[in-house]
Design a binder for these strands. Structure first.
Length: 255
DNA sequence: ATGGTAGAGGATCTA
């Protein structure tokens, strides 16, 4: 089984790339973030034409998450239960006995911002809900744009980014609280190339200079981590014309 | 150096 995640930064713009990517990579599930589409505008028919079902929750202009899958998704939940949030950032569904969650964690803007406070309230709400989900589902994968670089090796210039949003200690602590629930950062289960990132700013030739951060993650429950055989970033997609600023990440799980 | 680019929507906001 292959499960992937991709912050597409507008599914409307990126739909041809997503369809190509599904055809080429044939994941069983693909989690999307920043679809930026209301539900009535979701291109479910175009996606169905290449053999994928969709579950989604979106809004105009900002946010929006989805899961595309070959098999039917059940027990669909949108948002964090018990956490009032206008912003569409979470969707969960069950495929066979595997629970899959697509998340778009708030960016936070900068550490002085109100948005940073929202991010630091949002993360414990996610953690609290996941604690219950992990009790209910032994095989759980949470994938998405976490907007957190967990360690300095996930940042092209740790000195420059020290204490800044995406790298600040409170964010990293919140991320480690997620792992403490019984989740593993699948990327670090394997030896990886140095300077591996998933997001590069559109500005200042950041991608060409590999000035990136690893902020998109696939976290696996211990049972799924034990079955995980690869985790890879598809950096090639970032080189396409009109790319998303994020690259997809995919894990392969042995049967 | 507070810049720069992309997306949505139609002036700024978000990232």
């Amino acid at each position: 089984m292959k499960i992937a995640t991709w912050n597409v930064n507008s599914l409307k713009v990126r739909l041809p790339q997503v369809i190509d990517w599904l055809r080429t990579n044939q994941p069983d599930m693909l989690c999307l973030q920043e679809t930026k589409l209301t539900d009535e505008n979701f291109p479910a028919a175009e996606i169905a034409a290449v053999g994928y079902q969709s579950v989604f929750t979106g809004q105009k202009t900002y946010n929006g998450v989805a899961i595309l899958s070959k098999q039917q998704g059940n027990e669909v939940i949108t948002g964090i239960p018990g956490f009032a949030d206008e912003q569409k950032r979470v969707i969960a569904a069950t495929y066979g006995d595997v629970r899959v969650i697509s998340v778009y964690v708030p960016n936070g803007d900068n550490v002085e911002s109100e948005k940073y406070g929202y991010k630091l309230r949002w993360l414990p709400a996610l953690t609290g809900w996941l604690q219950q989900e992990l009790k209910d589902y032994k095989k759980l994968a949470i994938l998405g744009d976490f907007n957190i670089a967990p360690e300095d090796r996930d940042v092209y210039d740790p000195q420059l980014w020290q204490g800044k949003v995406l790298c600040s200690q409170p964010e990293r602590t919140a991320f480690s609280e997620l792992l403490k629930l019984g989740l593993e950062d699948s990327f670090r289960l394997f030896e990886q190339a140095e300077k591996s990132y998933t997001w590069w700013d559109y500005r200042m030739m950041a991608f060409r200079l590999n000035r990136g951060l690893r902020i998109d993650h696939i976290l696996l429950s211990h049972e799924l981590a034990g079955a995980c055989v690869t985790c890879a970033i598809d950096k090639a997609v970032r080189k396409l014309e009109r790319p998303s600023d994020h690259a997809p990440v995919m894990v392969e799980l042995s049967p």
